[in-house]
Computed example of a mutant assay.
Amino acid sequence: MQITPYIHALKTPLGPDPGRFVYVYLIYGDGITVIDTGFNGTEKLITGYIRSTGRDPSEIRLIILTHAHPDHTGSAKALRDLTGCTIAAHPLDAPSIEHPDPMLLKPPAPGMQSLVGGGVPVGRPLEEGAVIDCGNGLVLDVLSTPGHTPGSISLFLKKEMALFTGDTVQAPGRAPIYTDPVALVRSLRRFAAIPGIRHYLPSHDEPAQGKETYQRFDESLAYIRRIHALIKEAAAAAPGTPDPLALAGRLSAELELSGVPGHHVAFIARSIEADLAAQGLDERLGE
């Protein structure tokens, strides 16, 4: 769907469950800039959509990966092989993009293809303060927004007052996945301090506009606060050293994450482990 004259959003599936999706964003400037690429195979949806709008996939000049997870990087190699475009990402996540976990290169289940089409070189490192000229007066400012992963980035297109957040905003009802909850809260508060955002463009949540954008940030902070409280309560009730994997099952039930795939429990356990190890999270959440 078209968000503005320059921004297009493509909702791509994550497996057979229609409730699981990831957004790929396209910026139409002099060429085309792609923000995230979905799982391996999504390149067919991306190129088909581009053609349906009267443009050509050969116009793809740059792919920006907000972080290294396979639902964002999976078809980057295929698109690069097709177009010769440059891949851009933060240096902290670049190693996992260039050399993905071998397990991601194997089909996760019978009848499914691998999650990632292969490693791809990051030709343009992106850190805080970097500026990307997409042409037609479209300039993306790169924001370092760690927490979900160490090298997570977000992008702000000032001409459209549009914020692309990747997975930094943890939407209520979805599995909480983060490596550093303190950094994550700091990143969310940074978003909330940006005035005049017109378009909120996340990966696993629906886009929003205007005031609703800031409500999403507040809801995400409240979600993290609730998760933290539940983890503290469960850890206090558990005898001995808390087992993050055992707590993950309890947390999933408390949050009613019935639609979350079973393998996400391991990711939730890592988030719990990060929460238990965090220093100063209570203070940061209380600000």
Rank of each mutant, 00 (worst) to 15 (best):
I3F: 03
K11D: 00
K11S: 02
R20D: 10
Y28N: 07
T33Q: 02
T37Y: 00
G38F: 03
I46M: 03
I50W: 10
E59G: 06
I60L: 09
A68V: 09
T73V: 15
A78W: 01
T83L: 08
G84L: 07
C85H: 08
T86F: 03
H99P: 00
P102F: 11
M103N: 13
L104W: 14
P108K: 12
G117W: 04
G119T: 07
G123Y: 07
P125T: 08
L126R: 07
E127C: 12
E128M: 02
I132K: 06
I132C: 04
D133Q: 07
N136P: 00
V139Y: 02
V139D: 00
D141I: 00
T145E: 03
H148L: 03
S154T: 10
F156T: 01
K158D: 14
M161Y: 10
D167K: 06
P172Q: 06
R174F: 07
Y178Q: 04
T179D: 01
P181N: 02
A183Y: 10
R189N: 13
R190N: 10
R190K: 14
F191R: 08
R198Q: 14
L201V: 13
P202V: 14
D205L: 09
P207E: 07
G210F: 10
R216G: 07
R216C: 12
I227D: 00
H228I: 01
A236F: 06
A237N: 12
L245G: 01
A246V: 09
A248W: 09
A253K: 15
L257V: 11
V265N: 05
A266T: 13
F267S: 09
E273T: 02
Q279M: 05
R284A: 13
E287W: 04
